[in-house]
């Protein structure tokens, strides 16, 4: 398969970026999107040019490192996958593919397609945990947790922190990311103790970092590689009202 690629190039955070056009040929349909970029980079290195920088690590859809806004969709035109799990068979031979970095005030570009997502870490640091120290905890089976609750918590806990929700949202809102963590912990009895403090601190941090507001558009849910539902946002809203108004 052959493709024309329009890729955002930007030397560093301060530099002015631009789109550059590249061509790749003879790409196997079984190859992943990142492997396609690897091949382009190999070409560029052969020509002694700077390869395209993009974040990636595990290449099996769990580390949340890879990003890329491909033809108007975070992680490209497949559902429930990250870019590393997107395969070239999802594209038409000869297609022109636009590749942009995540765009959000809270995610400044570092280089080319690499953005700084440390804002997510800061939100978690504000309270996205149960403040238990090592040791001195009860037996794991001391608190039975209904299976349904545990499953719902797991659904939310699957978030990989990739930022696709922010990238997809027309408002660059981080509500789904924050809601996933708030929900995961609020659903479990262990998380109840700090639930009020947690949701207030995390929402305040989210607002402070310059993410947009939620307009319940649902783009986040549609693009989440782990298919986390916006029911979690509703749950976070409830938790937030409970914490703020009672």
């Amino acid at each position: 398969m052959d493709f024309t690629l329009k890729i955002w190039r930007q030397e560093n955070a301060k530099a002015k970026g631009r789109f550059e056009t590249y061509h790749v040929t003879n790409i196997s349909p079984d190859c992943s999107f990142l492997e396609m970029l690897d091949q382009l980079n190999e070409q560029l290195i052969q020509q002694k040019q700077m390869p395209i920088c993009f974040d990636h690590d595990c290449r099996e859809g769990i580390c949340g490192m890879c990003s890329l806004y491909i033809n108007g969709r975070p992680h490209g035109n497949d559902t429930g996958v990250t870019t590393c799990q997107l395969h070239m068979r999802r594209f038409k031979d000869g297609e022109t593919i636009w590749i942009e970095p995540w765009r959000a005030k809270a995610f400044p570009v570092i280089r080319d397609l690499v953005v700084d997502r440390s804002a997510f870490d800061k939100i978690i640091q504000a309270g996205g945990y149960i403040s238990v120290s090592t040791g001195g905890v009860p037996d794991a089976n001391a608190i039975p947790i209904p299976k349904e609750k545990a499953e719902l918590a797991m659904d939310a806990a699957q978030c990989i922190g990739c930022g696709a929700c922010v990238a997809a949202c027309k408002n660059a809102s981080a509500m789904l990311f924050v809601a996933a963590k708030v929900s995961h912990l609020a659903l479990l009895p262990q998380g109840q103790v700090e639930a009020k403090r947690r949701v207030k601190a995390m929402v305040a941090k989210m607002d402070e970092l310059g993410f947009g507001n939620c307009t319940n558009t649902g783009a986040c849910e549609a693009e989440c590689p782990k298919e986390i539902k916006i029911t979690n946002i509703a749950r976070m809203n409830r938790e937030f009202y409970k914490a703020s108004l009672t």
Partner: peptide, 13 residues
């Protein structure tokens, strides 16, 4: 303001 630089490709989500 949360997205000072817009995408070139319109969103298809």
């Amino acid at each position: 303001l949360a997205r000072p630089v817009r995408y070139v490709k319109t969103n298809h989500s």
